[in-house]
C-alpha cells in the first residue's frame, strides 16, 4: 500500500503540539496508523517540543509539590489502559484502524449506517467536539457525490475502496484536506464501495439546486 495524499504540515504540527481538537485529531491519528512517513514527521515535531521544554527558563514548584510526588511513587499502579476492541477472527486486518475503531465500537460490520439517498450511507461518530462533525460515509462503487464546495475545512480519509476527483486518486490511508477553494465531484472507483471518515466544521455547499433541496433532510 502506498499513500500519496498526506495531512498538511500545519495540521501535523497542531497535532504534535496538542493544539488540535479531538475530531480533527481522530482523522490525523487514524491516518498516522496507516502512514509511517507522517509518524516520522510527527516524531520530529514532538522532538521540537522536547527541545523547547529543555530550553525554557525553569519555574520552581513548591516543596510540597515535590514531596507529594515522591510520596506517590509507591502507590500500587492501577489496571493497564483500555484493551483494543477485538480484531476480526482469522487474523484478517480490520478496515478501521485504531483509534477510529474505538470510536465506532467495532469494525465496518458494527457501523449503524443510515441511508443518505443515491445509494450512499452515513454514520455519525460522537466526539467531544461540539462544533466539528465526524462521520463515516459509504459511497457506492462507481457513483459520484454531487458537486460541492466547502464552507469551512473538510478532512476526508479513505478507509476502503477509493475515490477520485480533479485533484487526484485517493485510496486507503490517503487524506484530502479541502476548503472553500476546492469545488469537486468525488467519484467512488468502480471496484468496491468507498468508505471514508469525513470531518468538517461547516455544512458542504452543493452546487446543484436538487442537492441543496435535500440537504436539510439528510443532515450533511
Amino acid at each position: 500500500m502506498s499513500i500519496h495524499h498526506h495531512p498538511s504540515e500545519e495540521l501535523l504540527l497542531d497535532y504534535a503540539a496538542g493544539a488540535l481538537g479531538e475530531a480533527w485529531s481522530l482523522a490525523v491519528a487514524t491516518h498516522l496508523a496507516l502512514c509511517p512517513a507522517c509518524r516520522r514527521t510527527v516524531g520530529r515535531m514532538e522532538a521540537v517540543g522536547g527541545k523547547l521544554l529543555d530550553d525554557i527558563a525553569p519555574q520552581p514548584l513548591t516543596d510540597s509539590a515535590r514531596d507529594a510526588v515522591m510520596a506517590r511513587l509507591d502507590e500500587p499502579v492501577g489496571k493497564p489502559e483500555s484493551i483494543a476492541p477485538a480484531a476480526p477472527a482469522g487474523g484478517s486486518v480490520p478496515h478501521l484502524p485504531r483509534p477510529l475503531r474505538d470510536y465506532v465500537g467495532g469494525d465496518t460490520d458494527a457501523v449503524a449506517w443510515r441511508r443518505l439517498g443515491l445509494g450512499a450511507y452515513q454514520a455519525l461518530i460522537l466526539t467531544g467536539d461540539d462544533n466539528v462533525t465526524a462521520r463515516l460515509l459509504r459511497i457506492p462503487a462507481g457513483k459520484p457525490v454531487p458537486t460541492h464546495t466547502h464552507n469551512g475545512l473538510e478532512l476526508t480519509l479513505v478507509l476502503c475502496g477509493a475515490f477520485s476527483d480533479a485533484t487526484g486518486h485517493y485510496g486507503r490511508g490517503d487524506l484530502q484536506e479541502a476548503d472553500e477553494n476546492l469545488e469537486h465531484r468525488p467519484h467512488a472507483t468502480p471496484e468496491e464501495d468507498c468508505i471514508c471518515l469525513a470531518v468538517t466544521d461547516a455544512p458542504l455547499r452543493f452546487s446543484s439546486f436538487a442537492a441543496r433541496m435535500v440537504q436539510p433532510f439528510i443532515g450533511i
Partner: peptide
Amino acid sequence: RPEPDMMDPAFV
C-alpha cells in the same frame, strides 16, 4: 486525544 496503537493489526 486519539492516538494510533502500534499493537493494532491494522497499524502499518
